[in-house]
Simulated assay, not measured.
Amino acid sequence: TAGQRADCTQFEPVLEKIRVPRTGPGRPRKTPDSVAADKAYSNGPCRGYLRRRGIRHTIPEKTDSRAARQRKGSRGGRPPGFDEDRYRKRNTVERAINKLKHARAVATRYDKRGYVYLGTVTAAALAIWLRT
C-alpha cells in the first residue's frame, strides 16, 4: 500500500490469493487452517472476514479495544481467543521479512507495477535462499 494507507486494507485481497497445496491430487485449498497477525489487523472487518470463512486466527486485541469492551461490561461481549504460543511463532516470519527488506528494491518499493515488485521480492528471496 501507499505510505499513508493502512495495511489492513489489503488483508482480504492477500488472503483471497492464498492457495494451500494438497499432498495428493486435486486443486489447492483456498482456505488456510489459521492466520497469525499483529494488532494492526485486530479490527472488526478483519475478524469478521475470518469468522465468515471459518479461519482460526491468533490476533492480539488492541489495548483501546479491550478497554472499550470492558467499559461496556456484559454488553461488550467476550474477549477474542488468543494463543500466545502460536503468536510467538510469528517471530520466524517477521525475521524472514526483515531479511527481505535488506534488499533496497524490496524495502523502498520503487516499482510501479505489482507484478514487477513480486518479481523483485522473488529474486531477493532466491538470493537469501542461495546464501544459506
Results as ranks from 00 to 15, higher is better:
2 A>H: 10
2 A>D: 13
3 G>M: 05
4 Q>H: 14
4 Q>Y: 11
6 A>D: 03
7 D>S: 02
7 D>E: 15
7 D>T: 04
8 C>G: 00
8 C>N: 11
9 T>L: 14
9 T>M: 04
10 Q>R: 13
11 F>W: 05
12 E>G: 00
15 L>G: 02
16 E>V: 05
17 K>Q: 15
19 R>A: 12
21 P>Q: 13
22 R>D: 03
22 R>I: 09
25 P>F: 08
26 G>P: 03
27 R>F: 00
28 P>H: 05
29 R>V: 04
30 K>C: 09
33 D>K: 14
34 S>W: 13
34 S>V: 02
34 S>K: 12
34 S>Q: 13
35 V>A: 05
36 A>D: 04
38 D>M: 07
39 K>C: 13
39 K>Q: 12
39 K>V: 15
39 K>E: 11
39 K>T: 15
40 A>N: 09
41 Y>P: 01
41 Y>H: 05
42 S>V: 10
43 N>S: 15
45 P>G: 09
45 P>R: 04
45 P>I: 09
46 C>T: 11
46 C>Q: 07
47 R>W: 02
48 G>Y: 02
49 Y>K: 03
50 L>V: 09
61 E>L: 15
61 E>S: 10
61 E>H: 03
62 K>M: 08
62 K>V: 05
63 T>S: 13
66 R>W: 08
67 A>I: 12
69 R>L: 11
71 R>T: 12
71 R>C: 05
72 K>G: 00
72 K>S: 08
73 G>L: 11
75 R>P: 00
75 R>G: 00
76 G>R: 06
77 G>P: 00
78 R>L: 10
78 R>M: 06
79 P>R: 15
80 P>V: 14
80 P>L: 14
81 G>V: 10
82 F>P: 01
83 D>W: 02
83 D>C: 12
83 D>Q: 02
85 D>W: 10
86 R>S: 07
86 R>M: 10
87 Y>G: 06
87 Y>H: 12
88 R>Q: 14
89 K>G: 00
89 K>N: 04
89 K>D: 11
90 R>C: 08
95 R>H: 12
95 R>I: 08
95 R>W: 09
96 A>C: 12
96 A>I: 06
96 A>L: 12
97 I>Q: 02
98 N>P: 01
99 K>S: 12
99 K>H: 13
100 L>V: 10
102 H>T: 09
102 H>I: 06
102 H>V: 06
103 A>L: 05
104 R>T: 10
104 R>P: 02
105 A>H: 08
106 V>E: 03
106 V>T: 05
107 A>H: 06
109 R>E: 09
110 Y>N: 04
110 Y>E: 05
111 D>M: 04
112 K>Q: 14
112 K>S: 04
113 R>I: 07
115 Y>C: 08
118 L>D: 08
119 G>V: 07
120 T>Q: 03
121 V>N: 02
121 V>H: 02
122 T>L: 14
122 T>S: 14
124 A>K: 01
124 A>S: 08
124 A>W: 01
125 A>H: 03
125 A>K: 01
126 L>E: 02
128 I>W: 01
129 W>M: 09
132 T>N: 09
